[in-house]
Amino acid sequence: PPHSTALPSHFMKGAIIQLATGELKRVEDLQTQDFLRSAEVSGGLKIDSSTVVDIQENQWPGFVTLHFIVGEQQSKVCLDVPPEHPFFVYGQGWSSCNPRQTAQLFALPCHRLQVGDVCISISLQSVV
């Protein structure tokens, strides 16, 4: 079964996030550009576009299974997460399967994550 640990507190509204540029921002103030710029200067990491193609109830209570198509290679990746887990959607910001629960737990304003949303994810930069 997936780990049923609580989500880390970096999703809590007001949490201080350090960008790769050294700049500090609150988690709720982050924008798409912050992630893109951070990946640019971090070296070794790259941002992928991960499109949500399916959201399913999980066999384990309290979890949902998200299906993504990731990056240029269009790889299929599944992720088991609690419904309150926030993902950063391009041009939209924080989004979760259950925004109400996210607000209760983290006070983080969220949109509802939907099939077709394009999330920000990271992977290792391939060395050519």
């Binding site: 350090q18 790769a20 992977s123």
Partner: peptide
Amino acid sequence: NVEPRSVAVFPWHSLVPFLAPSQPD
């Protein structure tokens, strides 16, 4: 005297999932 409180700072990459595409053959 008030003890200074330390504030946790989290790295940006801890906020987004690491979704590694499987390597092509």
